[in-house]
Design a protein around this nucleic acid. Sequence first.
DNA 1: AAAGTTTATGCAACTGAATTGCAAATTAAT
DNA 2: ATTAATTTGCAATTCAGTTGCATAAACTTT
Lengths: 136, 136
Amino acid sequence: MQNTDDKLTSRNIKPTAMRELVLDILTEQKMAISLSDLEQKFHKSDKVTLYRTLKTFEEKKLIHSINDGSGAVKYALCKESCQCHPEDLHVHFFCLKCQHTFCLSDIPIPSISLPVNFSMENTNMVVKGICANCND
Amino acid sequence: MQNTDDKLTSRNIKPTAMRELVLDILTEQKMAISLSDLEQKFHKSDKVTLYRTLKTFEEKKLIHSINDGSGAVKYALCKESCQCHPEDLHVHFFCLKCQHTFCLSDIPIPSISLPVNFSMENTNMVVKGICANCND
DNA sequence: AAAGTTTATGCAACTGAATTGCAAATTAAT
DNA sequence: ATTAATTTGCAATTCAGTTGCATAAACTTT
């Protein structure tokens, strides 16, 4: 089990205090969070720094982004082995009631047979409905 | 084959001049278009009116919206029979080169078996890659 | 360890999509 | 024709995402 610092360095991200803090917060989350969600976890913080931190993390494949249609892109940690290749991708779930977005990490994105001459790089699949919590 | 007017009235949308114009433009498109794309098809137009027109069309299930991650929501005509139920939904394709978004109307969204107590209402699935045009 | 170089952070400011309120205009109903 | 309801156009706002630039912090090289 890697510590925060190692997780950063193993993805070629320089482990600054800020980045460790952000990674720790992301690690605690049970759901994907947006930039402004993240911002609110700090008493005092600069949105732009957090923005760039997330960009860096995403670029280095430490986290992935999810477009759930809520207006704000959300972010969640990747698995340690993740390279964000098509085979690494999973389905996301957006709860229409609590508005939370979850990684369904165990559900791979089904492969699609595209029309002739179309090639695929990536897929964003978001199922919308009511989550287990809200369905009780 | 319904004319523009009938298409509107059959979806319970009052056929104003503006709406007929917008529907005609949408009908001509081979790909999904955003609000600002639509705005640019007019010499003089009001974005808000177009915005509300699209909202009305979507509400009445004449068109559907696609969140392709480009920053702007895109819209495309529904099939005549479409009720935007899960079984009516299809996969969308976003070309990373030309930035166009296509309806893969013949490719239904694969059904997913969700975790216990999760219920589904809707799914947004966008495959990203290079389209046939750009792959030549 | 000091000087220089690269990288990260913080602040101000901007862009563009989405949205609301309200008044004028158009359409439908009596 | 008058009234009522709906649609349209304009002004203005909100919020996510982004850029430029100056300062600060972290690495490099001597």
